[in-house]
């Protein structure tokens, strides 16, 4: 029971950057950016390839993030320079990335065995903190000390990201970014360069997705080019759960909602998996998104005060 909860929290925090990334594209630019299905994998395979080459996992993860950011840049340039529809641009880059990711990894998947990864660090940290890299016991229930370290580490990453993003969106640049997504004509009329803002949002969004991808691969001791498949829908599910919690509050709370939504989502799924009721996680995510977008009118009315219009449309 506790073991499942700790594991769910670890995964939730690992995927929280993805949720923040999807929040940026979906809630600010108002379109579901499929690039994340590719850039999540890019983060995983770039980090993996670098760690296989002997780079330390922290630098490899950061460079994985940059790889994801470049993927976002490609989508953004297709939109702003070539005038391709946002949705189509995302699909094109995602499709291209499938092969590119395979080339970077040199195959379809790669298990980390001898490589030093964040998990190696987690093992060492667990030994240092809890005197064991195997099981801890709480209330008579065992759980993995390494997973607890992951919760602490990824949780700290999430907190840092939340603080940075909250501050960032209060700056002149951040405000212009929100305006450019919310109402491009108004943003232009007050002198914001909308193209620059679209590019920045997509770069940031996909870099965050790639960070999740890189951590995800290291948590599961393997990188695979299929890691990113369905991640946009997962991210949308997190964001919509978060919107149900913190709908029309301040921007900072809505950002927080994306992270809390991710944790809640994983805890609920873990509980359902424990009771043996849920196995098809991506199917579940798709259904959650579908339900969130097509809630019956009376539920919508009930929630209308808390949910932003875009979320229930």
């Amino acid at each position: 029971m506790i073991s499942a909860a700790v594991s769910a929290l670890a995964q939730g925090f690992i995927l929280a950057p993805l949720a923040l990334g999807v929040f940026l594209s979906y809630r600010i630019l108002r379109f579901p950016d499929l690039t994340v299905d590719g850039s999540f994998g890019t983060g995983a395979v770039v980090a993996a390839a670098l760690m296989i080459g002997g780079m330390n996992p922290a630098s490899a993860t950061l460079l994985g993030m940059i790889g994801g950011g470049i993927a976002g840049l490609c989508t953004a340039l297709l939109v702003t320079r070539l005038g391709i529809q946002k949705l189509l641009a995302g699909i094109l880059v995602m499709t291209a990335l499938y092969n590119i990711n395979a080339h970077i990894l040199g195959g379809g998947s790669y298990p980390f065995i001898d490589e030093v990864t964040l998990s190696t660090y987690a093992e060492a940290a667990a030994r240092a903190l809890f005197d064991t890299d195997r099981m801890l016991v709480f209330l008579g229930m065992p759980f993995s000390s390494q997973n607890l370290v992951w919760v602490l580490f990824a949780g700290a990453v999430s907190v840092v990201l939340l603080v940075l993003l909250t501050v960032f969106f209060r700056t002149r640049f951040g405000l212009a970014m929100r305006a450019a997504g919310g109402n491009p004509s108004a943003a232009r009329a007050v002198g914001a360069n909308v193209s620059t803002m679209v590019v920045s949002t997509l770069v940031l969004s996909n870099a965050l997705a790639a960070l999740s991808g890189a951590m995800f691969a290291q948590f599961f001791h393997a990188a695979a080019i299929t890691d990113g498949t369905g991640m946009l829908v997962m991210g949308l599910a997190y964001v919509l759960v978060g919107a149900a919690l913190f709908g029309q509050r301040s921007f900072a709370l809505r950002l927080l909602g994306a992270v809390v939504g991710t944790l809640l989502y994983h805890l609920i799924i873990a509980a359902l998996v424990q009771s043996g009721e849920v196995r098809d996680l991506k199917l579940v995510a798709a259904v959650v998104v579908l339900l969130a977008l097509t809630l019956p009118p009376f539920v919508r009315k009930m929630l209308s005060r808390r949910m932003p219009k875009e979320a229930v449309r």
Binding site: R172, G174, R178, G182, N183, A187, V190, A192, N193, P308
Partner: peptide, 25 residues
């Protein structure tokens, strides 16, 4: 911008003609 507050909209206008930098809006 509908989902931004009145003061955020006006802060945006106050930035007009300046670079969109990382100073607090």
């Amino acid at each position: 911008v509908a989902e931004m507050t009145i003061e955020e909209n006006l802060a945006l206008a106050a930035c007009r003609g300046r670079r969109s930098d990382l100073g607090f809006a």
